[in-house]
């Protein structure tokens, strides 16, 4: 089973090179990393997949990123509800990220059903639970718990990531399970979320027939 850490930020964004992060990932029990702006490669038995995050909350930017994607895993930062629905229905988008920073109604039951149909994963940045303190962390935990409730009902995929900028931010699979337990995610659910990426890649690369 593939165990993937989604969206890490190696040097020059962070303070650790991709090779060093791959070594650490191996020690932590991961076999795949989705790294921002890094070419696909393999180091120490860890596959590196290229990922991008589209932060501009416009469909123009999303469509441009999808057209140029190639083998890249495209993640889009979540925005208003209507924007999120449009993003989910855009072929080529694999992940919706940053939902904890949006309003509560930005991801509702309708959006959840769309995400399940289109096999677009919701990215949970577990690093937020480590870096944030106080009110911000409480808000993140609340949002993740709400998303988990929707996920259990509509069964859209989750994707987990440490959001690491350094090898000191990377967490092991066991630690991921413990941290996800903070908002009620069971061990099996966490392991399934860590194995989401191969399914997403198959889904986004499948030919689309236009009649």
């Amino acid at each position: 089973m593939t165990v993937t850490d989604v969206f890490i930020h190696p040097h020059p964004r962070g303070d650790s090179t991709i090779r060093r992060m791959a070594r650490t990932a191996r020690e932590c029990g991961f076999d795949t990393l989705v790294a921002i702006d890094q070419p696909p490669a393999e180091y120490n038995g860890v596959s590196i997949l290229k990922g991008i995050i589209v932060s501009e909350r416009t469909m123009k930017a999303v469509n441009a990123a999808v057209r140029k994607r190639g083998d890249t895993i495209v993640g889009v930062t979540a925005g208003e509800n209507s924007f999120n629905r449009s993003v989910i229905q855009t072929p080529g988008v694999a992940l919706l990220t940053g939902i904890c920073s949006t309003r509560r109604n930005a991801f509702d039951h309708v959006t959840a059903r769309f995400a399940a149909e289109k096999k677009v994963a919701v990215h949970l940045d577990i690093g937020m639970l480590i870096t944030c303190r106080g009110h911000t962390r409480q808000k993140v935990l609340t949002r993740y718990r709400e998303l988990l409730t929707l996920q259990r009902k509509y069964e859209f995929p989750f994707a987990l990531g440490s959001g690491a900028y350094s090898i000191l931010d990377q967490r092991s699979v066991r630690e991921m399970v413990q941290l996800c337990g903070l908002f009620g995610m069971e061990r099996d659910e966490t392991l399934a979320a860590l194995a989401t990426i191969p399914d997403l890649r198959l889904e986004s690369s499948s030919p689309r027939v236009v009649s």
Binding site: D15, R19, R20, I167
Partner: peptide, 13 residues
């Protein structure tokens, strides 16, 4: 001071 974590292979780059 800032620490950069790398490997022997990264020194070329």
């Amino acid at each position: 001071q800032e620490v950069v974590f790398l490997t022997k292979d990264d020194m070329e780059s």
